[in-house]
Design a binder for these strands. Structure first.
Lengths: 207, 207
DNA sequence: GGGCACACTAAGCGCTCGCTCAGCTTCGGC
DNA sequence: GCCGAAGCTGAGCGAGCGCTTAGTGTGCCC
């Protein structure tokens, strides 16, 4: 059902770093279930069933249901941060790099919507230690976007009064794509990415 | 704890239309609990406890836990729609009305964050009938914002290529405030509302 | 001041949850 | 061909869930 979505954009097949195979199948099943119904409404029996295994098999590969969420969240945040870093550190003007960052970040949130939903909206189900680890990654995400905007302002490319507030708004806009994007809707991830890159350049007053 | 937040902005005390008193206390307790932990992670014992009552008392005023969520969602959406309609139908240019709509809509999502969180993020916990009713209200919310933007384009005030896509982005931006806004953070709801009105006018290319 | 409607509680029912454990199968090493 | 490790299952434990029911206290009407 979501196989087509998960491989959209011609990206490398996700979760390939998760081994062995049974652990990956359980993790993919958990992503789908958490995205559909939320972490608390998902049962371990449901996850195991989607992976074609008995409920007890889950506990051979993961200590608890929360460890599954933690692993998903960690891998997802690493990927999101990687996307932004790649865009932020390429050659080009701040305008080009911001457009690139926004369009690729949005493409990921739309094209890999199930994963992004879990990553962005189930944070509060994590325990204190795991949550702190993920929040640190989020601060790095924030810093990447803020960096591009600051450089654009310094170079005279952008016209922004409140850099911190605008950064927050830009990230919020991109992240919320995971909430409303519909795989069967009229827009492709690429179209939304292009629209959002244009909107964000307007927000920062790019020339 | 959240009393100050709930009355922020000098608005009329919310939930006053819910009677009798015990039913209102239960509903307010449910809003706080759902916002903190999510619908599925909240127990009826927790809601009743916050309202200073026994678990059984809940079922004198509400048929099920879901009815509580439905009532909260309905009242919240009615309020959100009312805010947008008031801004959309006042006197003034499309630019003035869009700025007014965004700033008041954002003030509500920031100042009444607990309510807005439940209203905007717990929709999928509702059953099919209740969900359909709420989705209809959301379409009306969408139509109000789209109407202002269309009028602005027709009047030559705005420069927008994709009206539907931009409407979606504007609403998404405002709604997501409920996810990240922190009552103890550096910004007041008024400041966020003003910043966002400016950002949205830039997004639609207002002169 | 007796009776009754109403708001509420204490106790608990049936169920499903996350998780455990004893035992079965499979397979590589020798 | 035997053995132990690894992967997995069927059965089920203790806990906590949403919700019900029998009974209690309170205040209003006549």
């Amino acid at each position: 059902m979501s196989t087509a979505e998960e491989t959209a954009g011609g990206e490398v097949e996700p979760w390939e770093e998760v081994t062995p195979d049974a652990a990956r199948r359980l993790l993919v099943a958990a992503v789908e279930a958490f995205a559909e119904r939320g972490y608390h409404a998902t049962t371990t029996r449901d996850i195991a069933g989607r992976a074609g295994m008995s409920p007890a098999a889950l506990y051979i590969h993961y200590k608890t249901k929360e460890e599954l969420l933690h692993r998903i969240s960690r891998i997802g945040h690493d990927k999101a941060l990687d996307i932004l870093r790649t865009a932020a550190r390429r050659e080009g003007t701040a305008t080009e790099r911001l457009a690139d960052a926004v369009s690729s970040f949005v493409r990921w949130h739309a094209g890999r919507r199930t994963t992004a939903r879990v990553v962005q909206y189930e944070l509060e189900a994590l325990g204190p230690d795991a949550r702190a680890e993920i929040l640190d990654l989020r601060r790095q995400v924030d810093a990447e976007v803020r960096g591009i905007i600051q450089e654009g302002v310094a170079a005279g490319e952008f016209d922004v009064i409140d850099v911190h507030g605008t950064t927050l708004a830009v990230l919020s806009l991109c992240i919320d794509v995971a909430r409303w994007f519909n795989v069967n809707g009229p827009r492709t991830p690429e179209e939304v990415g292009a629209l959002y890159a244009d909107l964000v350049l307007r927000m920062v007053g790019a020339k």
